[in-house]
């Protein structure tokens, strides 16, 4: 079982989460040429090793998270909120309590 350290809820089994997908994709502007949208929607680097991905804590706080994970060993290296604003608030709160 993979365990994910949710920044909001703490360490939880991955069965509480839903897998999103590749978090390294940069979606182009809406009026970008079709080829750029094709690449973003359909092509994947499909890394064997460390990759950035999104997970949602569906059976917990329901927040979207970014996770850095190894796709062979399944080891998790880092977890942080996908939404930058939440990330900043969380960071500020931690600093206040420390």
């Amino acid at each position: 079982m993979i365990r994910i350290d949710c920044p909001f809820c703490g360490l939880r089994d991955h069965s509480e989460f839903s897998y999103g997908g590749d978090a390294s994709i940069n979606y182009p502007p809406l009026d970008a040429p079709a080829e750029q949208w094709h690449d973003a929607v359909f092509l994947r680097e499909n890394i064997r090793g460390r990759q950035l991905e999104t997970w949602q804590h569906t059976s917990g706080c329901r927040m979207w998270l970014n996770v850095e994970r190894d796709t062979v060993s399944h080891e998790i290296f880092a977890v942080w909120p996908a939404h930058r604003g939440y990330g900043r608030v969380l960071h500020a709160e931690k600093e206040n309590t420390e």
Binding site: M1, H14, Y19, G21, E53, W55, V72, H74
Partner: peptide, 9 residues
């Protein structure tokens, strides 16, 4: 989830 590991969860 994406994986290259030949073992199941």
């Amino acid at each position: 989830y994406k994986s290259y590991a030949q073992r199941g969860n």
